[in-house]
Structure formats: C-alpha cells, structure tokens
Design a protein around this nucleic acid. Structure first.
Lengths: 253, 253
DNA sequence: GGAATAGTGTCTGTAAGACAATATAGA
DNA sequence: TCTATATTGTCTTACAGACACTATTCC
C-alpha cells in the first residue's frame, strides 16, 4: 500500500498552477464510507435495518446500511447516506442525523478505513423494504445489540448509536419522527418507553409534550378496546424540541 | 480523477483469497483529513489556535490546525488529531472531543474531501507554541469568528465548533478543562461567561459547581487586590459533569 | 470608614416525580 | 355494573433566577 511516487518538490506560481499539476495519487488515502443506523419501532421493540452483504469482505454476513461515496454523483456525505437509505427503504426525507466518525487501521481488513455514521428515524408503517440483490430485514434490538453477527465493527457502531439515541430521547422530541401519521399520546409515550427501556410517568410525559408544542389534535379518536384516545399528528415544519430539563435517569455516575 | 481500471468481476474462494487480490486503487477515494479547533481562554476572550499554511492550496492563508492521516503511524483518527495538536502545542492529553465530519465536493479545490473536526480545550498557562516552519498564533474570537480570512471552509467549521462548545457549556462542566492548575470559583465563572457571552448569577453558578462535585479546595488563597479568594483544583480522574438542567438561554425558538 | 471583590441567605418560579382521582368506552 | 385504558388534579421536590446581605481585604 505504500506509494512510491516522490512527494511534491516543485514550486508553483499560483494556486491555479498548483491545481493544474495536482496528482491525487501521491499520497495514499484511507477508504471512506458512510453507514446509517436506520431505526424504527414496532412489535414493542426498537428495530434496526440490516442487509446481508453479497461481496467480500464479510461476504454473507449482516451489516448496517452503508456504502462508499460516489465521487461523481454525491455532492456531500449526507447525500451518500440519503442515497443508500432511499435505495433500501424508498424513503426520501426521514430524520437523519450525523452521529460520529470512526477511523482506524483495523476496522476493515483491507486497511485504513474511515466511516461516518448517521442515524435515521423512520415510522414503520408504509415502508416497503426494497429487496434488491441482497437480503434485507428489520432486526429487533435486545441488550443493545441484534442477534445477528454483524460485519466489520458494526456491532460497536450500533451500540454507540443506540446510546446516542437513548441519551437524546431524554431531552428531545426525537421519538416523534418514529410515529405514523396519526397517533395517540399513549402511542408516543410507549415509543419513549421502548427506547428508554423504562416506564415513564404519564402526567409528566404529557406535560412535557404539551410544552414542546409539536403536535396538533385531529378530530379523530382511536377506538380500541376501552376508552377512545385522541389522535394527534406532528405539526408541519416543526423542529426537534429540546427540553431544558432531562428526564430523570442516570446520565452521570 | 476518474479511474479507468475495470471493477472487480472475478469471484474469490474465501475472505483471505479476496484480500490477497484486493487492489485499493480500483475505486477513487476522497481525501481525508482531521482538523482540530483548539480553544483556550485568555485576555478575557475565547481564542483559537491558527497556523499559516506554507503550501498550496491556500498558501500563506491562516487555517485551523489539521492535516492528513499518516496511514503508517496513526492507528486511529484521534491519533491524527493528537499528533497534530502535540506538534503545535506540545500538549499531550488535553480535553479532545470529536465534533462532526464535513465531506463534500467543493470544500477543497483538489476535489472530494472529507474532514473530521475535533475540538480541544487547553489551559492557556504554560503552553509554549511550537514555532516550526510556519507561523502559529492564538486568535481571539469575536462575533463567532476570527479576524483572519481562513483557508478552505474553516470559517464555517469554526462557527459550528463554537456553537457546539457554547451549547455544551450550558449543561456541562467543560470549562473546567480551560483552567490553570489552581483557580478560584470567580475565575471559572468568568470563563463560563466569556464563552457564553453573558453574565451569570453567582449564587446559581456556585450551587451548580458544588453539585457537580468536580473540584477540591486547596489550602491556598489568591491574594489579589481586595478580599482573597479560595483556590480550587480539578479533582483527579473526574469526568465531565452533565447537569440535568440547562442554564437558562435560548436553545429552542 | 469606603471601595471592591468574595461568598451566603433566602424567596420565587418552573417543571419533574408521585400518585390519587376522574372520564369514557365495551362487555 | 365492572374493567381497562385515557386523561386530569394536585402535592411534593429539585434546582435555577433574582437579589439582598454579609465577609474580608486594602486604601
């Protein structure tokens, strides 16, 4: 992998002159990819989208949705994430947030590799998984991991992404992005509880959501088994709300 | 920049077989770098370390401390950040946090480029800037920017890093990492105020710091002009403290 | 004593936690 | 009616904001 071309020794007259003679192969570069942890909630569990790899390395192992940057067609890193996400789910504009970047010598057997990890939140309803060449499925998260053995360091990436999500749910309205078009406050609370893995006080929860002012009532009610519940929908063009106080729960110690 | 080698069409017998024949030059890769926004506080101002570039592109312009990954010697991205930081400041283990990664087609005139941005917090005392081939200096931040015209998209990177720092200072003990060995509570409050750009309530501030339990008293006092103040020092092996409540200040709206 | 800075007392306000109480459906 | 879930009332607690007050130094 060591490049034996000689380093730049010439001097240039201007920025333009330099760029005219620029040789991108002089220095070796790490490989660069984007991986997206695509979360949804259903069956009472937080689930993550995984894909079976069809190529080496880690051929036939499950992995997070990701891939290399298309230098021709992707304008930005986020474009790469969105492109891959749309390829697999058909969804164009979900909640997408950059999480962190992992880069080191050992994570890829092919050598130095950098991956920027995003996480996406999708409502589960209406998502039709795009079955292309490879298998794809939702896998439930238990104990901060999926049952499948994941390729590369994806188990660790997943663990860190879950931690980030869980932490952020303590002080934001993020779970709203996991909901179907219409939902009840009970539904939303359930989603918070599934992610946080702990029951919340109903009264406090409703006070918080009311304060955030991110929902609007619909005229409809959900008629389930017992008392009907009012259906809400996320207001248009609403940003994630940041609460000034965190839900009680061990952040420190 | 388009690579004209043909893509992989052969099939391999095993992971090992694949790796034996792996050619890293098949696909073009973006350039990958690390930039670190090195903050300190002195003269009543938040300051950032900048270096004058000696090479193209942006020759002779000021820039954040950064550089390319040394694929041979750096094990991880953070190693790259630490190496560059030590080269410039001589400091080995400051507070260092990964901030975000920017990758797009236009940020570098040489083409697709990805940079992972870290921010570091250093106490100003005792730091001897390492004057190597190039000029280096602290530049005060006013209005979320420095006076110098920075290379690449570093002005924007700096802006975002400041935003991140400022936001985090509202609910953490981060500024403790900017302090000299011994300091008074007044000193610490001043640093909070400089970063937040607003005066804080002394009583509330002291309550918060006491709650965080990150400091220990020394027996010494600082004898300044008027009433002496008790000197504190950061406890050993203390983590950043996360407060459950944010200091009042517009996060939403 | 006066000025200046260090440090405390204490009242108010806001939102979270706890939990009891009430409301509305179907069986 | 009873049961289950939805929804509200309200008391307590924790901690931030406001601001007055006290303490300690030098002049």
């Amino acid at each position: 992998m060591i490049n034996d071309k000689s380093p730049i020794t010439e001097t240039y007259n201007s920025e333009a002159d330099f760029l005219d003679h620029y040789d991108p192969t002089i220095f070796d570069r790490p490989s660069t990819s984007v991986d997206t942890v695509i979360f949804t909630v259903f069956d009472g569990q937080l689930q993550v989208l995984i894909v079976k790899r069809t190529n080496y390395p880690f051929k036939n192992q499950w992995a997070l949705v990701g891939g290399f940057i298309d230098l021709e067609n992707d304008e930005t890193l986020e474009d790469t994430a969105k492109r891959k996400l749309e390829e697999k789910t058909g969804v164009k504009t979900p909640y997408l947030e950059q999480c962190f970047t992992i880069g080191n010598k050992q994570r890829d057997p092919r050598g130095w590799s950098v991956t920027t990890v995003y996480f996406a939140l999708l409502p589960h309803n209406k998502i039709q998984l795009m079955k292309g060449a490879n298998e794809i499925k939702w896998s439930p998260i238990m104990n901060n991991q999926v049952q499948e053995l994941l390729a590369f360091d994806h188990t660790e990436i997943l663990r860190q992404a879950i931690e980030r999500l869980r932490n952020k749910v303590l002080y934001t309205s993020l779970p709203a992005y996991l909901m179907a078009e219409k939902f009840t406050l009970g539904d939303l609370q359930k989603v918070y509880e599934i992610i946080l893995h702990r029951p919340l006080e109903t009264k406090s929860f409703r006070r918080r959501i009311a304060k955030a002012d991110i929902l609007e009532e619909t005229t409809e009610m959900r008629q389930d088994a017992k008392r009907p519940a009012k259906l809400y929908r996320l207001k248009k063009d609403i940003n994630t709300y940041f609460f000034l106080r965190t839900i009680e729960g061990a952040i420190n110690n």
